[in-house]
Computed example of a mutant assay.
Amino acid sequence: MYLDQVKNFKAHPILYFVLPVAFLLLMVVNYIFSMGIDTNDVIEQTINQIGVNGAFILMIFPLSIGVFVVWFWVKFVQRQSITSLTTSRNKVDFKRIFFSFFLWASITIIMTVVAYYAEPENFVFNFKPQKFLIFLVIAIILIPLQTSFEEYLFRGNLMQGLALVTKSRIIALLIPAVMFGLMHLANPEVGKIGPVIMVYYIGTGLFLGILTLMDEGLELALGFHAANNLIGALLVTADWTAFQTHSIFKDVSEPSGSFEIIIPIFIIFPLLLFVFSKVYKWNNWKEKLLGTISTN
């Protein structure tokens, strides 16, 4: 059991909160300093100075190397194996990672194609082969590292630390979801759509947490998160998003907030949970999500 295995860990509980709290404090400081600043203008100025790919690397590289910081901390400070941080299984199930990745990648591509043909006036064809191929290489390397950092930090280290301290699955589920949402406060999407977009960020964190608890490991969350950010960045960009890239399409519509929030959180994610539950034969939902954690 992913959370129950914390009874075998020997590190002092406070060590599980050092990295998540430090990271969240950095995000809060960033948010405070960004208040009163037009984030879109800052991104545009950066792009003008070092180009789209340069700005993308500048933004994502610190998060991409963050996964190595988490692995180092867990391995050498907490004296815990990376496998136990990843899963309750004897070894990491890469088939689960790839299944989740390709499932969500396929759905994302289909939804983008449908949106394009339904309202083509909302999109501009942005494809430039040479620039796209260069960005493709950068994205394939950096984005999975970035998303893995967030999964290992929130659904891994923080969730296991909360399980160790509180013995409560619901607390271990909810607090990382909220912190995951808060780390996006400085994103330009918040300024464009409004604070209501936090429902999407926190809801996504909740969805990823449910995947982790029900499947007893991070594999499905790792695959989904990588597909969400990578395929999204390759397919569509917009002037008001955090990731502005050499994507295939550019969205020139005004976001309403309803599609970006209601459809994924209340329709698509529950359907995905249903699909995963059938594929991996999940059961005992109440105990896995709301029960207590045995440390005996």
Rank of each mutant, 00 (worst) to 15 (best):
I231G: 11
E287A: 14
G156Q: 09
G181I: 02
I171N: 15
F274N: 08
G194C: 01
V29T: 10
A177H: 05
D239K: 14
I267N: 10
I140D: 01
I37C: 04
I107C: 08
F132A: 09
P62G: 05
A186G: 00
Q160E: 13
I47L: 00
H184A: 04
G156F: 00
N157D: 11
N296I: 01
T237K: 03
F125Q: 12
V70G: 04
F9R: 04
W71R: 06
Y201R: 02
I171Y: 12
T241R: 07
I50Q: 10
I175Q: 05
F76N: 14
G232S: 13
I140N: 02
L3P: 03
S84R: 01
F56N: 00
K7L: 10
G51Q: 07
I263F: 15
L153C: 04
Q146A: 03
F274D: 08
Q244H: 04
K250I: 10
T46P: 05
D93C: 03
T292S: 15
E150G: 10
L153E: 06
L290S: 06
A226W: 14
A105E: 05
A221W: 10
I14E: 09
N126S: 14
T39C: 00
N53M: 00
S258F: 15
P144T: 04
F99D: 12
V70K: 04
T83D: 15
E287F: 07
M159N: 12
N30A: 10
T212E: 12
L164Y: 12
P188M: 02
Q130G: 09
S88R: 04
K278P: 06
A226T: 11
T147L: 03
T241Y: 03
I14M: 08
G36R: 08
D38P: 00
T295F: 09
F72R: 14
S277Q: 06
E121I: 07
P120H: 07
G217D: 12
L145K: 03
Y152Q: 10
S148F: 15
G203H: 02
L164P: 00
N283Q: 13
T108C: 11
I248H: 02
F76Y: 14
Q5W: 05
P188S: 01
G203N: 09
F154I: 09
E119G: 06
T147C: 07
F243D: 02
A55S: 06
G161Y: 14
T112H: 13
L222S: 11
A115W: 12
V67W: 14
I50G: 02
F127V: 14
P120T: 11
T39D: 09
D215Q: 07
G181P: 11
I293R: 13
D4L: 01
M214N: 05
L63Y: 12
V28T: 13
I143A: 01
I268T: 14
L174H: 07
K167T: 13
P62R: 05
I37R: 01
I263A: 14
G161V: 13
Y16S: 08
K286F: 08
G257S: 10
F266I: 07
W240K: 02
L289W: 09
I265G: 12
L26H: 05
N8R: 03
I134H: 05
N228A: 10
A139R: 01
M198Y: 07
L3M: 14
I263S: 13
L230C: 02
L153Q: 12
V18K: 04
